[in-house]
Design a protein around this nucleic acid. Structure first.
Length: 96
DNA sequence: ATTCTCACA
DNA sequence: TGTGAGTA
């Protein structure tokens, strides 16, 4: 699917989707014409990223824990990251 | 409609 | 972490 559709269904701007790709958060294939082509799963992925942002995680933090969703595996480094983020989120409970 | 880049909060 | 503007 193309970027406009993903943006509408995920509830974010087209600009934001291109920004996520720039940050390495969302991969997109390219059509022959150079347009981004997203798998339907991209919608859920974007929604998940929104949740992490809403919890106050930076894109850098998201980048470190997001791969465990793809592969279904959790490295020690990711586990530590998740524990650290949870502690931080609990500390600032309520904000951003 | 989509692509890109630069500059700005 | 995004957006606006100009471009092709």
């Amino acid at each position: 699917m193309r970027i406009g559709q993903v943006a509408e269904q995920a509830g974010v701007s087209v600009r934001a989707l291109r920004y996520y790709e720039e940050q390495g958060l969302l991969a997109a294939e390219r059509t022959a014409g150079g347009q981004r082509d997203y798998p339907p799963s991209a919608v859920d992925r974007v929604r998940f990223i929104q949740n992490l942002y809403a919890a106050g995680l930076s894109s850098r933090a998201v980048l470190r824990i997001l791969p465990c969703m793809e592969h279904g595996v959790l490295t020690d480094e990711m586990h530590e990251r998740l524990l650290a983020e949870r502690a931080r989120v609990e500390t600032q409970a309520g904000r951003a």
